[in-house]
Amino acid sequence: MAALRAALPPGWTLESGKARSLADAPERLLISSPEGETASFSVIAARGVLAGDAARFADAVSDADRGFVCARYLSGPVRKQLDAKGLSYADATGNTSVFADRPAIWVRDRGADADPWRGPGRPAAQLTGDPAARVVRALADHSGELSVPQLIRLSGASTGATYRVVETLAERDLIERLPRGPITSVRWKDMLRAWSSDVRFRDCPSVGYFAPDGVESVLERLSAHADLLYAITGTVAAAHWTEQAPSRLLQIYADNCEELASALGLRIVEDGANVVVATPRSPSVFDRTVFRGDVRLTSPTQACADLLGGRGRHPEEGEHLLTWLADNETQWRVSLRNDTPN
């Protein structure tokens, strides 16, 4: 209240409606102009707000009323959604937006861009680890409304971990979810970009090998080893869906790197590797793989994320594949039927 009063021009006043008790937030804010016109705001007080809550708050305010959301902290994605829903807001760090047509008023101020009350024991909202990989891949590879119990079954992640990842995705404005309901929308392109910046192929334990007869010969030999658990990613995998320049580097995920290298006749080198075999940090890299001939490739979403998080020309190739994915969504995303049981 003090911060809002200080931001108002001379002659404007701010009053609060009566609260049920001293512990409650006021139920209404009244901002009056020097000419006597008053803008009334229904106060929506919340301890924690996710981006998906903005729609619920907007629905709770009648068409003839204005909403004012207040909380301890409102993140950037949350503020963006509140703006989009036409809601005013303020948090305890100083992030403020108050507007009305009559009387004409617009107050806006910037506070903290990170929650100052996020304790050191609480991890940052990142998409790292096996549960995040499982959930992100499941959300990217499927379309349609998806309840969290369904997501748990599709991803194979634990219940608690799935809910935490869903909360992170909502905080980062990468999904929309109804309050205590299903996930209704996935911004899968932004989600893949965000995931690729948190988890990269090159961060996996890997070994560089040299194949003297080139990448194509390795691919030919791989076709004879269907018994081994592996999946090709990166440029070579992306070439299955989009036109890519020939690659001199073959990137492979393998359940047993040494066994795969031995079967392919590869030798370890410190420099000049043209084959890199990595141990994945999540077995989800082997989910929903595809075949080119008899060679196993990662899913297009996994290959895209690995390229986006790569070096050199890889990010550009990742964006090229991302464009193909957007233009051909029905070819790779599995549609979930509305009558799928929860």
Rank of each mutant, 00 (worst) to 15 (best):
residue 2 A to Y: 13
residue 4 L to N: 02
residue 7 A to S: 10
residue 9 P to G: 04
residue 10 P to I: 03
residue 15 E to C: 09
residue 16 S to D: 11
residue 16 S to V: 11
residue 18 K to S: 11
residue 19 A to R: 15
residue 20 R to D: 15
residue 20 R to M: 14
residue 24 D to M: 05
residue 25 A to R: 15
residue 26 P to D: 11
residue 32 S to D: 00
residue 34 P to K: 03
residue 34 P to T: 02
residue 39 A to C: 06
residue 40 S to M: 11
residue 40 S to D: 11
residue 43 V to D: 01
residue 48 G to V: 12
residue 49 V to Q: 07
residue 49 V to K: 06
residue 50 L to S: 06
residue 53 D to S: 06
residue 55 A to G: 02
residue 56 R to M: 14
residue 58 A to M: 02
residue 60 A to H: 03
residue 63 D to Q: 09
residue 66 R to F: 13
residue 71 A to E: 02
residue 75 S to W: 08
residue 77 P to H: 09
residue 82 L to F: 05
residue 82 L to P: 08
residue 84 A to Q: 06
residue 85 K to L: 10
residue 92 A to Y: 01
residue 94 G to A: 06
residue 94 G to E: 04
residue 95 N to R: 06
residue 103 P to G: 04
residue 108 R to M: 01
residue 109 D to H: 15
residue 111 G to M: 04
residue 114 A to Y: 11
residue 116 P to H: 07
residue 119 G to S: 14
residue 119 G to M: 13
residue 124 A to M: 12
residue 125 A to E: 14
residue 128 T to Q: 15
residue 131 P to S: 08
residue 134 R to M: 05
residue 137 R to L: 15
residue 138 A to R: 05
residue 140 A to K: 07
residue 142 H to P: 02
residue 142 H to F: 02
residue 143 S to A: 14
residue 144 G to A: 02
residue 155 S to A: 08
residue 158 S to T: 05
residue 159 T to E: 11
residue 160 G to Q: 04
residue 163 Y to H: 09
residue 167 E to G: 09
residue 170 A to Y: 00
residue 171 E to Q: 14
residue 173 D to P: 08
residue 174 L to N: 03
residue 179 P to R: 02
residue 180 R to A: 12
residue 181 G to A: 04
residue 186 V to A: 09
residue 186 V to L: 05
residue 190 D to C: 00
residue 194 A to K: 10
residue 197 S to N: 11
residue 198 D to L: 12
residue 201 F to K: 11
residue 205 P to R: 01
residue 206 S to A: 13
residue 208 G to R: 00
residue 209 Y to A: 03
residue 209 Y to M: 05
residue 210 F to D: 12
residue 210 F to Y: 14
residue 211 A to F: 06
residue 212 P to I: 07
residue 216 E to I: 00
residue 217 S to I: 13
residue 218 V to E: 02
residue 218 V to M: 02
residue 221 R to D: 12
residue 222 L to D: 01
residue 224 A to E: 11
residue 226 A to Q: 10
residue 227 D to P: 02
residue 228 L to T: 07
residue 228 L to E: 03
residue 238 A to S: 00
residue 239 A to S: 13
residue 243 E to D: 15
residue 244 Q to L: 03
residue 244 Q to C: 03
residue 246 P to W: 00
residue 250 L to A: 09
residue 254 A to W: 14
residue 256 N to Y: 08
residue 257 C to V: 15
residue 257 C to H: 12
residue 259 E to I: 00
residue 260 L to K: 13
residue 263 A to Q: 03
residue 265 G to S: 07
residue 266 L to Y: 15
residue 266 L to E: 11
residue 269 V to C: 13
residue 272 G to Y: 12
residue 275 V to A: 07
residue 278 A to G: 05
residue 278 A to Y: 04
residue 284 S to H: 08
residue 285 V to I: 06
residue 286 F to R: 09
residue 287 D to R: 09
residue 299 S to Y: 07
residue 303 A to V: 12
residue 304 C to G: 15
residue 306 D to H: 04
residue 308 L to S: 04
residue 309 G to E: 13
residue 310 G to L: 03
residue 313 R to M: 10
residue 315 P to R: 00
residue 325 L to V: 01
residue 325 L to G: 05
residue 329 E to R: 10
residue 332 W to V: 15
residue 334 V to C: 14
residue 336 L to N: 01
residue 338 N to A: 11
residue 339 D to N: 07
residue 340 T to E: 14
residue 342 N to L: 13
